[in-house]
Amino acid sequence: MTATPDTRVPWDRWDAPAEDWMLSGECPAGTERTLLLELAARILFPTVLVFSLYLLLVGHYGPGGGFSGGLVAGLAFVLRHIAGGGSDGAQIGARIKVRPPVLVGIGLAVAVVTALVPAAFGAPVLASVKVGFHLPLLGDIEIVSSLALDIGVYLLIIGVVLDLLRSLGSGIERDAREATSDQTGAA
């Protein structure tokens, strides 16, 4: 916030971040928060996501691919969930509200359609095409059409991990809440 501060904001809030620095927001299991983990998660989350995209893209020739990329991206969400993301951790970016099963469905649909598309051109099912082109700065780039299949798998795996977080993670939170209320009830 380097622009001229809005006068209606009290001076001691000028440097407050535009969004919550902690993505976690409200932590359902409030008793067991660790600041260190939350900070680390804040920094690591985008980094891990970028790495998962890297794995997705290099997968055709190198180690990686849609499955491992999706798992790594899923781990990013697991990290945020453990750091106190609560059930919100299972909603991508906490802003784009996609239900995990829908993500699974879209991923599976993309993969199956990729398998079927070559048949429309008279090629065998699951055949792939290599497209090469030149980009400034990046140089020659080759894209294989089976990347679409990898993207489908990537989405599917993220959806599965998020669904696991939603179904199993919310159970852990419920147990934690019950344990807390039991303690307060006993006291």
Binding site: P101, G105, I106, A109, L116, G122, P124, V125
Partner: peptide, 25 residues
């Protein structure tokens, strides 16, 4: 559409249907 894709359809169509039923959850 060729005859050679026919054996793949009984596998791919139900999978596509599964995806569609999840999206139309």
């Amino acid at each position: 559409m060729t005859a050679s894709m026919l054996p793949a359809l009984p596998v791919l169509l139900p999978l596509l249907g599964a995806a569609a039923t999840v999206v139309a959850g």
